[in-house]
Amino acid sequence: MKWWPIRGLSRFLTEKRDYKSDTSVKPMKKIFRRSLHVYTIDVGNSNLLNFEIKELQSPQYNTHRFGIYFADSPRHADLLIILGNPTEKMVEPLMNTVKQMPEPFGILIVEENEIVEENEKNSLQLPNVVGKLKNPEPEEILGALLKIMKGN
């Protein structure tokens, strides 16, 4: 048996840091408390948010230890993260993706800045929106995800 994990756990070698998020999110169902599969779709951002999301999988944040996994298909995902404000051509793929999500699911909107007016965003009428982040750090995203999982 490999004893490194036990040693690591006993010495508290893993980082004991709280990831806090200021944004208010709606908690999802209790079944996601220990595992959340996430699918991200980029509907139009300046690539900044893509980097931020990618950071979450790096050793620095290592979301896997909280049970947050990135899925390859919306059919496997519990939470859809929408990056950016939808451009004209991405509206239809976005709606198709939302259709593919299995029930129950949530949508987390991550925006870059506040250029787009609220009306245009609301016209899409996305279902089950659990929260909105604006120009977040990876830390903040992770905090929001953990908040969603915890179920308050």
Partner: peptide, 12 residues
Amino acid sequence: VRKIDPWNGGLS
């Protein structure tokens, strides 16, 4: 039952 198209990268 919800009926949807096969997943094709968001395109119909």
